Amino acid sequence: MGGHVTGAVTALASELPEWVTLLRAPNPGPMTLDGTNTWLLRAAPGEPALVVDPGPADEGHLAAITAQGPVGLVLITHGHLDHTESAARLRELLGGVPVRAADPAHSIGGPPLAAAGIDGYGLRIRVVPTPGHTADSVCFLVEHDDRQVVLTGDTILGRGTTVVAHPDGHLGDYLASLELLSAYRGIPALPGHGPALADCGAAADFYLTHRRARLDQVRAALDAGARTAAEVVATVYADVDRSLWWAAEWSVRAQLEYLGRESGGDDAGLDQP
């Protein structure tokens, strides 16, 4: 789920490895940008592909995925419906291939993902736990033919910033995950929404700077007398279309929790530090 920053967070990837294919779902919107990115990874012609994030329940999109068969495995970066809604149907269309996610609730026909990674289908895949956007968020570091990519789900987007939706999202975890991803210098990032980026580490640095600046703005709003999450949104996110303030309030609640302050309902005040 994207935020309101509309520009790319770092340079776009000029080219991707030949073993990477993008299929974009037809579900564009304020929170999904151009639509959900479904990534297919195939080590060589004829080898079973890996599908990452099958996307929404759209039969046309599923037909486009199945046309890329054979497929050996479906991987999930996190459990939001715009990434997982079609997983069971895709598994059916593909003859029962396993679907694997960090959360057992989204794993079908296979064990939940473990940090040890996955070897097979001619690809080396490391599962990188990156909680924060959601508790179950993971990224995938994939290597083949001396080239690497990082599939970042919604932890890093190709355009804009992601929503950390309290209470499932946790800002402290998210900042730690960005610190981890900042080490992946010069490796292309394949996000869940938006275009591919040239440098995962540079994108993580941008996100860290943006989040820290937002925290400073929230602190200033509280010091100026904001008493509810909604009042913080009205001050800090005044430049955001009001139709997206509901999503901004999710992030504000995560920011308040991170700052050690609690917010109640619209009529409730904030605890003072």
Rank of each mutant, 00 (worst) to 15 (best):
G120S: 08
R219W: 04
G192P: 08
R124V: 12
I187R: 00
L73K: 05
A63Q: 15
L141F: 04
G158H: 06
P45M: 06
S137R: 05
A49H: 05
G55K: 01
P98M: 00
A220Y: 00
T228S: 13
E59W: 15
T130G: 10
P129W: 07
V233I: 06
D103V: 00
A247F: 10
R100C: 04
A220H: 09
D267Q: 11
G60R: 08
P98D: 01
Y174T: 12
G132E: 10
L33Y: 00
D223Q: 13
S243N: 07
V127I: 07
L171T: 15
P131H: 08
P17K: 08
P30R: 08
L157V: 05
L41P: 06
R159S: 11
R261G: 07
L141H: 14
L157Y: 03
L197P: 01
A234D: 08
P98Y: 00
I156V: 13
P104W: 00
V71T: 07
A203I: 10
C139W: 05
S137W: 01
D241F: 07
S86A: 13
D241Q: 10
T32N: 03
A67W: 00
R89A: 15
P45R: 02
E59H: 14
G172I: 15
A13V: 03
D173Q: 15
V97S: 02
Q148V: 08
Y207L: 08
G132V: 11
T134Q: 02
A248Q: 14
G109A: 04
A115E: 14
V142N: 05
A268C: 05
G110N: 05
N37S: 10
E15L: 10
H106K: 09
G120W: 08
A43M: 08
A268L: 02
P188Y: 00
Y184E: 09
P104C: 01
L256Y: 09
L12G: 09
H144R: 13
V52C: 11
R242L: 13
A102W: 01
A116I: 13
G172S: 15
G122M: 11
D199R: 00
L190S: 03
T10R: 10
P188A: 00
D154K: 08
D168V: 11
L40F: 02
L151N: 15
R91N: 11
E179D: 12
D199Q: 03
A11Y: 06
P30H: 06
P26M: 05
V164D: 11
Q272T: 15
G69T: 04
V164L: 15
A238G: 09
A203L: 03
G201D: 01
T10A: 12
D239A: 14
A189D: 00
L73R: 06
W250N: 12
V138T: 08
P45I: 05
T161R: 11
P48F: 09
T38F: 07
T209Y: 12
V128D: 13
F206D: 02
G132Y: 12
T152N: 03
A115W: 07
G160S: 11
R24P: 05
H78I: 00
P191R: 03
L222A: 01
R253Y: 03
